[in-house]
Design a binder for these strands. Structure first.
Lengths: 212, 212
DNA sequence: CGAATGTCTAATGTCGACATTTATGTTTGA
DNA sequence: TCAAACATAAATGTCGACATTAGACATTCG
């Protein structure tokens, strides 16, 4: 087990992250430093440090002299975020598609099957988790840290804002079908096809989320 | 003239930015809060705020409990950064290539000619500036703020680290040729070609810089 | 002699108080 | 009545001091 140091700042980041996931902080809400400081029994300094870290990851919007807020994404911004994610991940997957072993393809197949199963059982949390595993494995071969940093940020931001809706977007059968299309394109090794499919997947998902 | 408010933090950001551009801060150097605070006659609080902003833009590396440093990019990181930039900008340009007017293409043509001219006169600063204009105009049609934010960050980071070397990378004639290839692909309107050309341009530039 | 341990210094981490600014709501004047 | 000017409250911006920690150096013990 790796030894991690937990400075106050880190704890604040974790705390806010939880609030966001739990839905206790909603888009538009203000994160008041004084309030958070009181609630956690510390001073405002580490709160401010934490805010900056959350801003980096796009989880908090900062308005000078005014405060920090949970971002409110317009439909266009939602679509743009998903589009960008599609571009980055499409490239990441395309450029590493030859590196997958037979075992890994099998594992990916299984993940899709599991997703369908969980979806049928209406186990929303596991659908999201398994989808995350599928996605993580697909981009795991890329060693472009610059690109991975961006995709991670985007992924986290979109996860926190919309993970609640993901399970309602598609029917169980469609969840399976959509991910199988991606997987098939990767198996084919056709570079252009892979990028096209991944981009389209995110474009369509973004459009759906934006109209909710 | 827009009214801009200059908080201490902003002034610190500008100051450090200048130091970086002027080469008074080199990769690996530590930015000591105490020292900066003394030098600017303010307290450490706004310095810390500024550091966080610089970290966001990738201009400063942060090591907990240790300090803030000017990033040292490994050859691989340089290549990755340029590769990622190629992916993002390739998409941005491809997806908006139909929106350029004849006047704008003419303007782009002229910029390339000017670059060659400045290169022949060994006016390095103007080569870089004109190249920046060319690049800015090419991606100016995109309204994907998410994507533009990333490209701007990457662009700024790479500019600060390597703008000194750009003028030595290619001969004047090659500078012209390379940019004309990009421009021609945009004029052709061939989506796949545009992305391929832009990606290749940045891939080659990254490789060259990495081996310096 | 060398590796583990102890000490010291300089840097970041945190604190509580005060200054400044934003946004709101109230008053004032034509 | 309405708009401009003015208070007011509450938030962030900044300050200087103290606490804690990482890294370098000195020390000890085998």
């Amino acid at each position: 087990m790796p030894i991690v140091k937990k400075t106050y700042k880190d704890q604040v980041v974790d705390y806010v992250y939880q609030l966001l996931l739990a839905g206790e902080l909603n888009p538009g809400d203000q994160l008041k430093e004084t309030l958070l400081a009181e609630k956690m029994g510390i001073s405002r300094a580490p709160i401010r440090e934490a805010m900056k870290e959350l801003i980096i990851n796009g989880l908090v919007d900062y308005r000078p002299q005014v405060g920090n807020f949970v971002p409110v994404l317009s439909p266009k911004q939602i679509i743009d975020s998903y589009t960008t994610r599609g571009v980055l991940e499409g490239y990441a997957i395309m450029s590493t598609c030859k590196q997958f072993s037979a075992e890994e393809f099998e594992k990916l197949d299984n993940l899709v099957v599991q997703m369908e199963r969980y979806a049928n059982k209406k186990n929303h949390k596991m659908v999201v988790d398994t989808g995350g595993d599928f996605h993580d494995l697909l981009i795991s071969k890329s060693d472009n840290v610059e690109l991975l940093e961006y995709t991670d940020r985007l992924s986290l931001k979109l996860h926190i804002q919309f993970f609640k809706h993901w399970s309602t977007l598609y029917s169980p059968a469609e969840i399976g079908r959509r991910h199988r299309v991606i997987l098939d394109s990767v198996k084919s090794g056709d570079s252009d096809l892979i990028e096209r499919v991944v981009r389209q997947h995110y474009a369509e998902t973004g459009k759906k989320i934006a109209t909710l």
